[in-house]
Each structure stands twice: as C-alpha cells, then as structure tokens.
C-alpha cells in the first residue's frame, strides 16, 4: 500500500484489485472574502490524504470530530468538489469526470449517513425512499420493480408491510435499516458509511453491524467506514486510517494498528477507549487541551501542541508519511525520516 510517486495522469497503470485509490486529496474551504491585498484564508479540512481500498474489504477511518473524516468521504463521492488530487474509482478519476458520466457512476457508490432522523424524507413512504433512485437509474426493469424493492427490504430486515409506511413511524434502528436499504438497492460496489451507528443504542448497534457484515459477505461490497468508535472500527475493518486535523497520520492493517500503534496520537486514542471491565485499569495517556483550529494549524507537525513527546524539530518540519513495516505507515518525527 505504499504511495508511489505518480505522474498527474496515470489512470492506466491501475491495479484491478483496488476499487478506490485516493491520491493527495485536498479540500480547502475559503473562510475570508477575496481581497487584492490579503491572501485568502482557508480551512484545510483535508490536506494531502492518500490511501487505497481493495475490493471487498473495509477501511475504517477514525479521528476526533473536526478532523476531516466526513469531508474525505463526501469529497470522494464528489458531494463536495475536490480542490486538488485524484480519486480513482475503478480506474476513472472522479475528480475530473464530466457531470454526465459522473451521474452514470453514481449508483456504484453510495453513502449511509449518520443521523437516520434527518437523512430520510418525511414525506415519502419507505418503498418510495428506497425505490426512487432505482427508478431513476433503471436498475431493474419496470415489471420487476416492486418485487425487487421487497427483496431489498427483506435483505435488510424490513417487513414487507412497511412498504407504505412513513419514516416517522419507525425507531432509529429501523430507520437506519431503511437508509442501508436505500444505498444497497442501487447494487453499488462501494459504500461510504458515515458514522452509521453513533445515533443508535448499543443493542441496536449490534443488529446493524451484523446486517452490514451479512450484506458484505453476500454481495461483496467495499466499505469505507467512518467512525469515532474504535471498538466498532476494530470489529468491522481490515485496514484503518487515523486522521488528525486533515492529515492521515497513521494507516495500516487493523491488527498492526491495534497491537503496535506507532503515532503518539493513535496511542492516546486507543488508550482513551473505556473498557467494560471494572478490574482492568488502563494505563491511560490523557491528552492535554483540544484540537487546534484548522484555520491556523500549528506549524510543522499539527499534533505537536498536544503531543507528550514533542521535540524542537516537530515545530519546524511536517513529518513525512512513511512506511515503517509492511502495510503500516506513520507520519511522526519519532521515527527516522530518511
């Protein structure tokens, strides 16, 4: 999973195993008006992020709120325009693709949103919510439409008589099932799950996790799973990326990240998860302070203001994102940068 030096347009030497290749993705939001005399200030929500997802696997993206993980997801789907960088989906650069073709690609990549209470239209019955895009993209012939929707609903654990009901009649867990059914109905290859569990109760979370896993086994979906709940990410993902203030600071195989976290932030993050056992006393690393403002991030390494191991060099130079063992990359000055 190393990042090779790449020429701007090399969508040809693309590995068929990789469904999604993100290279140097950047997304800046302007925060001040255009002026002749001052340089424009930007929030660097996503600043130079690169990763690859293999077909049929799950990548977990973790980080605190405001670190840009949701923006990564939305920019990949081009719900926000890309500022710079490449998003190769099945070999096509989504960042540059013309709108008409992008529209044709849309069914292949879907998104499940965080809040099932605001992401479903209150004025549409469930059948229509799930089926609207199916009709639009002509996924199945008209004659099979209804039976297809009912099949999708059954797959997602929804009773057929929910077809004519409205979202307000359902609980949070059921609504999240509807959101999943809506995404799955388009026969996508790739689904971005943006904190799909955080609005749900523990017992319902387990049901949804199992549903997502079953669907993946059955249909071979690829997930990008965005979450701040490390235990869930650990359970679902194959690879994990840790983000901090718009940068990917550590990425690698799940087991490697959890057994041998290298970046001080990852260590702190892992130790902060409460354990459901009163006798286990964690040796906890408690970070001081809050995440800095993304408009004026600290110079050099962005984490240095909260880092227990900060050195003089951290303020001068941003660390390089480098591979230290196979399938484990870190950006930190604690490890040799050569």
């Amino acid at each position: 999973m190393a990042i090779e030096k790449i020429s701007p347009d090399d969508s040809k030497n693309y590995n068929n195993d990789d469904i999604l290749v993100v290279r140097n993705l950047k997304k800046y939001y302007p925060v001040s008006k255009f002026s002749l005399f001052k340089s424009r200030a930007y929030v660097k929500a996503v600043d130079d992020v690169s990763f690859t997802i293999k077909r049929g696997t799950t990548m977990g993206l973790v980080g605190e709120s405001g670190c840009g993980k949701t923006t990564v997801g939305r920019t990949i789907l081009r719900l926000h325009e890309v500022t710079d960088g490449q998003v190769l989906f099945d070999g096509k650069d989504l960042a540059k693709i013309p709108p008409k073709e992008l529209r044709k690609m849309r069914p292949q990549m879907q998104m499940i949103f965080q809040d099932p209470y605001s992401s479903l239209s209150p004025r549409m019955p469930v059948g229509e919510i799930i089926g609207e895009a199916v009709k639009e993209h002509k996924i199945v012939p008209k004659s099979e439409y209804r039976s297809y929707i009912l099949k999708v609903m059954r797959d997602c654990g929804l009773q057929p008589h929910y077809y004519y009901r409205y979202p307000h009649e359902f609980s949070g867990g059921q609504r999240q099932r509807i959101s999943i059914a809506r995404a799955v109905a388009l026969k996508p290859k790739f689904i971005i799950c943006d904190e799909p569990l955080s609005a749900l109760d523990v017992s319902i979370q387990a049901q949804i996790i199992n549903l997502m896993k079953d669907l993946q086994e059955q249909y071979g979906y690829t997930y990008l799973f965005i979450s701040h709940d490390l235990s869930v990410v650990k359970y679902l993902s194959d690879t994990i990326g840790v983000m901090y203030l718009g940068n990917l600071i550590e990425m690698g195989d799940k087991n490697k990240i959890f057994s041998n976290p290298m970046h001080p932030y990852t260590k702190a993050l892992l130790s902060a998860v409460p354990v459901s056992d009163p006798d286990v006393k964690m040796n906890r690393i408690i970070l001081k302070g809050d995440i800095p403002s993304p408009v004026n991030p600290p110079s050099g390494c962005k984490f240095r203001t909260r880092c227990p191991y900060a050195m003089p060099i951290c303020a001068e130079k941003a660390p390089v994102f480098k591979e230290y063992e196979e399938g484990h990359q870190v950006a930190c000055h604690l490890y040799s940068q050569d």
Partner: peptide, 19 residues
C-alpha cells in the same frame, strides 16, 4: 453486544427486536 474486536469472523451477538 459490544464489539470487543477480537475476531471479525464471529458474528456479533445482538438482542433481537426492540423495546
């Protein structure tokens, strides 16, 4: 039903139904 993350192959236990 809380994932401890040990194995992904095991199905997570879930309480069926709802309140």
């Amino acid at each position: 039903s809380k994932p401890t993350g040990e194995t992904r192959d095991n199905r997570l236990y879930s309480i069926k139904g709802q309140v």
